[in-house]
Write a protein that binds this DNA or RNA. Structure first.
Lengths: 116, 116
DNA sequence: CAACTGTTCTAATAGTCATAGAACAGTTGT
DNA sequence: ACAACTGTTCTATGACTATTAGAACAGTTG
């Protein structure tokens, strides 16, 4: 389980951590029942604060993507399946957007706005 | 030309203004050559600060979506065409995400992460 | 019981968002 | 030439967010 973060990015670190997990789930690299590494582990390996990682984990919990309990850790739920179902569509869209020279932020913002 | 903003949203106002223009361009309601309303007009009608609208316009310029010059205003460029081309794909993806119960933010974050 | 897990609390610093007001400098139409 | 428009730049301020730090608490596991 590898969580990546780009310190140079404008996106907050906690959002990047959550996004990294989400993307792994969508790609099938994380499945229901899998355990996330402990927040302290992730914090140490990324060189960021424990609270920053916990905030990421908590936003994943609010989305229902993980179950969390003290002592146990964070476990992926079945709510990741919808993500996996969308993976192909998302990948296709991103590929086309890349060809057209759109930035990640532009495309993400467009998707978000279209949701209304 | 109608720009919408949700004051209750977590998304910064300037980002919402930019997103609104982007969505109009993607939907074909804005085409190359069209003029955006002046920043002062938009600020007044939304009840927000001039600087907030200008920040939105400047982010659109950084994306190449508009040309801006003092005295003239902001004019939509041909760079909106890629947006229009993606419109159908984006709408399809969003429709499926809705069926699966995904939130706008989750989907947008997933798209952004998949871009890497 | 020891070692792990997330949870909660206070605190400080740095940065962003939005506001406000003023002045500046091009462009347009009269 | 002039007035009225446009975006540009500057300083300043208050509210909020992100990140860090350290400590203590409370379940879970072997």
């Amino acid at each position: 389980m590898l969580i990546r973060v780009d310190p140079a990015s404008e996106t907050p670190i906690f959002a990047q951590v959550a996004a990294s997990v989400r993307a792994d789930a969508a790609a099938g690299r994380l499945r229901a029942g899998d355990k996330l590494p402990s927040a302290r582990e992730v914090a140490a390996s990324l060189g960021v604060n424990l609270h920053t990682v916990l905030r990421a984990y908590q936003s994943l919990r609010e989305e229902g993507l993980v179950d969390m309990r003290r002592g146990r850790g964070a476990v992926v739920t079945e709510a990741v399946e919808p993500l996996a179902q969308l993976h192909h569509d998302v990948a296709t869209l991103v590929a086309r957007a890349k060809e057209l020279g759109l930035s990640p932020d532009t495309l993400a913002a467009l998707v978000k706005e279209t949701y209304r």
